[in-house]
Design a binder for these strands. Structure first.
Lengths: 207, 207
DNA sequence: GGGTGTGAAAAACTTCACAGCG
DNA sequence: CGCTGTGAAGTTTTTCACACCC
């Protein structure tokens, strides 16, 4: 079963396991069982083992998982074992928050450039990064950067995405509240914050 | 099949359909087929029809969907047919971005209070909302507000969540990069931005 | 005994194909 | 005829139970 198609959700959970591994290691823990890890993440122990089994034998029967090895293994699987750069397009409130956020580093990710179309903002430096005009997007050294974060309004999103695709970007994390059209080779993950809040009332038991 | 258990994913897509309906209506369109709507959202036509069929007969055979009726129906299904208030906890960069964002209104949602634990921030007014101390969370009129947005670091997240649960909050949209423990009756949606970016390299075909 | 790895069963979700309505 | 609504088939994902290893 090891080389069968792997569920997307298993990949998502793998990232959650990595997050948990880092937390446990910070606490000085060296070793976990699938049950411990499951508890930390909020899933079942057999789910953890099954997810891992898609990728190989990561633990030791009767013993559990060595956190150092597990961290290395998950990083390798998720291709986070080398440092990667991303660019940010849109330095509004959300864009600034993303630039200021230090949480990417632990996954080996770094924002190395920021773009905006507002002449007022271009040239300014936010968190050590000089904001460039969006017209400069065309000049991204293809292959050097494969990830982009999109924090712009829906109206201009598709236009910018087309530009990013031309520039050779392979993965886009978009906060624009709209669907985006890209070639099949490009992966888009859309996070529509308002929409996420909007689905909650459905689940509210009463009221 | 109408009253069987409805897939979570169908509910998520329902919100996407609503988003698309609003866009189409803005364009002056009054009427769509499942195929048109599917194209707008990026799914298949039969998926649209199946999703709708979980909730009733929303369209007219041979004709399609009336956008005004469809909007009303989806709003009713998602329980967005009355205005709701949410509170925000954590007025850092991300919290400010959320306060400034105007996209909640179209779903009938409004942020009516903001809280932070930083004395420097308490008392200040951001986007017309005065920031209160987190200790005031206890005084949220239970039942008046059932949704909360959490934009705080992982370290204090669980503590604040416990507080929110005590205050009667039923749904939490969390940007804290950690799992949260809540009673089963409370719904938590966690968005870990860095983790979403971190899962992308896995899917990058080359490099 | 304690704990992993995994085939097989069960459940959930998606896709299909077509009856039937306007 | 065009398009919806939906049972049934097909596929994916989760859950289970247990063989097997330390």
């Amino acid at each position: 079963m090891r080389y069968a198609r792997i569920p997307d959700q298993a990949v998502q959970r793998l990232a959650m396991y990595l997050r948990a591994v880092l937390v446990l290691q910070d606490r000085g823990i060296w070793h976990v069982s699938s049950k411990d890890l499951a508890g930390q993440v909020g899933v079942n122990d057999w789910q953890v083992r099954k997810d891992f089994s898609y990728f190989g034998e990561l633990g030791t029967p009767g013993v559990g998982y060595d956190l150092r090895k597990l961290q290395r293994d998950i990083r390798r699987i998720l291709r986070l074992d080398k440092k990667r750069s991303a660019i940010l397009v849109g330095v509004g409130n959300l864009g600034k928050a993303i630039l200021a956020y230090g949480g990417f580093a632990r996954y080996g990710l770094r924002i190395m450039a920021a773009f905006d179309n507002d002449p007022q903002k271009v040239g300014k430096v936010v968190n050590g990064i000089r904001i460039q005009d969006v017209s400069m997007l065309k000049r991204i050294a293809s292959g050097k950067v494969s990830l982009a974060i999109l924090a712009i309004p829906a109206a201009s999103a598709q236009e910018v995405v087309d530009c990013l695709v031309d520039a050779g970007i392979k993965g886009i994390l978009s906060f624009a509240p709209c669907p985006l059209k890209v070639p099949k080779k490009v992966r888009v993950v859309g996070i529509d914050i308002a929409m996420h809040l909007a689905t909650m009332p459905y689940y509210l038991s009463s009221d």
